[in-house]
Amino acid sequence: MSTEIIPYTIEEREDTGVNNAKLGIWLFLTSEVMLFGALFSTYIFLRVGTINWPVGSSFLSVPMAALNTVFLITSSITMVMAWLSLVDKNFSAYRKYMLLTILLGCAFLVVKYFEYTAKFEHNLYPSTNTFLGLYFTMTGLHVLHVIGGLIVNIYFLFPGSKMWESNPERFKNRIEIAGLYWHFVDLVWIFLFPVLYLL
């Protein structure tokens, strides 16, 4: 199944102004918005329906989460710099930024791992109360998204980067698409952080 014959894989269609992958990833992200939207809706619904709601920081560690926020936001800028390096046709800078993005993503996961184990040590489980149930479900789903993004990024750092030789324009588009997804993951965290930890 060759993909060469399909038009607008690289170049933009005149009347819509985008290429296929760009439209595709945005459509995918809209469904992600609805996925997390349903979870936030659950949060509001359950919180409004309850008599007392715990303050997040009474269970959770704000410093750790703040550190994680810094990691994710920094990884977002390295991601966008990786793309910009490709626009600048500077492949070695791309590799550097991409590696940094991946390392920051991993750092996020490590902190998250310590957070989870700290909860389990204090006998705080998803079944302990509704707030913790929401916390583990929402952050758990977010962690899965981070892992997904990391796999994609690692692919583009190592085996996928061969395309830079054969089809640089398409490779650059792919990094932009991967970046859009990665920024979205960051964006979800920007909301999760205050909603779960601070309110």
Partner: peptide
């Protein structure tokens, strides 16, 4: 908190994305 989060997300979506 929601105002600050919205500003942040607007920056990410508007400029990074």
């Amino acid at each position: 908190a929601l105002i600050i989060a919205s500003v942040k997300s607007t920056l990410v979506a508007g400029i990074f994305m």
